[in-house]
Structures are given as structure tokens and as C-alpha cells.
Amino acid sequence: MNYENISIERENGIAVITINRPTKLNALNKATIEELHKAFKSENEDRSIKVIIITGSGDKAFVAGADISEFANFSIKEGGRLAAQGQEMLFDFVQNLETPVIAAVNGFALGGGLELAMSAHFRIASDNAKMGLPEVSLGVIPGYGGTQRLPQLIGKGRAMEMIMTAGMIDAPTALSYGLVNHVVPQAELLDLAKNIATKITKNSSVAIGKAIQSVNAGFEEGVNGYHTEIRAFGECFGTEDFKEGTTAFLEKRKAAFPGK
């Protein structure tokens, strides 16, 4: 599939999706969100892809925000629809993907950009990265899950401060907050992401998908995460990956998971 705003590279079971709008600092417009949805869906359905890395082109920005010109004149109804459709199409979709997603934050991750990074299963950042949710400075609030995911990741108080001040934090602060897992020089960012991804590819993709489902359940209102875990744990026993993993362990060899 040909894309205008993103590119995809695949190697050794790892897909790297790069948002490629450098003149707009990779800002998310409607077309880019639609392309990202299609790309994540396609890579998730490809059995050969075990991990997806999402990053931005250039050395300045992961995603510098949403394309404000697209919604500056929206009505209340249109604004609500924008948030609902965006969350369903991309942000919630990524969070609940069975294939693990790593956000490699290579510069500014602001507004919708930080919300996209937070939708990933975890984040690593370059040492020049800056992150923030500046929406209140425009008279609006984060609408792509930012008010929900940021407190989950860094705590209510810190999230409130970031949202209310509309300020940015640097990469070391993001690391100390637990917003990102690692900070490295920009030249080393993709190598680190691929190194972590390679470790993930050696494990059962079926089990990883069920682990993602179980962890996410603990953050969903009205859902008992423990019950989800118990059900998913039991389901693992009926998979070929479980049979291969336990057999390999008993035979003292490395498992070759079929991903079924």
C-alpha cells in the first residue's frame, strides 16, 4: 500500500512506521490519522510482524501536535465527533493492538503527538525530546485520551500540572516521571528501539497479545483486570506457542514459537 504521509520499513519481524511530514513537524492531520490506522491494522494482521515501532521523520519532532487549521472553526458537535473518531480510529486502536507498539520519541511530542506516544505500549526518547499537552493555551483540552493516559502514566498531580500549565518537560524529566523508559542520544534511538524489539520477537506473540489485553483491562472502568488475566492465562494453554514453549523448556532448548 502506498502512503503519502507515512513510510514503513520491515526487517526481522519488526515494522518501523515513520510519520513523514517534516515541513509540518509531522503534525497529525485527518489524512495522516487515517493512514496510520490503515498501517497499524495492516502490520498487526501480518503474522510475520512481531513488533511495531512508531517514530517521526527528521531530527526535530516525533509529532508536534495536531493540524489546528483543520478544526479551528468547528462547532461543539464537530469537535466532539473529531475526538470520538480520532480515539476510535487511532489512539484506542493502538493501545489495544495485539502487536506490541514502541514509540521512539525523536523530538517534540506535543498535544496529539504525546497522546499518540502514550497510546503505544511503552516509550523511549532521544535526549533532545520535549513533551507536553499545550491544548489549554488554545482554549481546548486534550481530546485524544491525554487527560486519561497521562495521569495513569505519571500520576494525577504531575499530569494536572502539565495540562494546566500547558508546559513542556524535557527527556530527563520524562524519564524521572516514568513517562518514558529510556533516554539516549538521538543517533542511538532507533537502534535501541530495534534492540528492545528484537528481544520481544523471541517470545510468544500470542502470549504477548494476551498480556497486553490483561494489562489494559486493569485500567478500564467496570472491568476486572484479574478476571481478564485468569481467562487469558487459561486460553494460553490451548495455544501451539504454549506447547512449544513448555516443550522447549523441558528439552533445554530455545523455543521456536509458531505464533499460534
Rank of each mutant, 00 (worst) to 15 (best):
M1E: 11
N2L: 11
I6T: 00
E9S: 12
E9H: 07
I14N: 01
I17A: 01
T18W: 06
I19M: 10
N20C: 09
K24A: 12
L25V: 07
N26D: 06
N26H: 03
L28W: 05
A31R: 06
I33Y: 00
E35H: 04
F40K: 00
F40R: 00
F40P: 00
K41F: 07
E43S: 00
N44S: 13
N44C: 10
I49D: 01
I52D: 02
I54F: 10
T55R: 03
G58L: 07
D59S: 15
D59Y: 14
A61K: 03
F62M: 00
S69R: 12
S69V: 08
F74V: 05
K77G: 14
E78P: 03
G79T: 09
A84S: 14
Q85H: 13
Q85I: 13
D92H: 11
V94C: 01
E98S: 14
P100I: 01
V101S: 05
G107K: 01
A109L: 08
G111C: 14
L114M: 07
A117E: 06
F122T: 02
D127N: 15
K130G: 07
S137T: 13
G139H: 10
V140F: 13
G143S: 09
Y144H: 04
G145L: 02
T147C: 12
Q148C: 08
K156Y: 11
G157F: 13
G157V: 09
M164D: 12
D170W: 07
S176V: 04
Y177M: 13
V180F: 06
N181S: 15
P185W: 08
L189D: 05
A197F: 02
T201C: 09
N203G: 08
S204C: 12
S205W: 04
V206I: 13
V206H: 02
K210W: 08
A211T: 06
I212F: 02
S214E: 05
V223T: 15
V223C: 07
Y226T: 09
E229H: 12
I230D: 11
E235R: 09
F242A: 10
T246W: 13
T246S: 14
T247I: 08
A248N: 01
E251G: 05
R253E: 12
K254A: 13
A255L: 06
P258K: 04
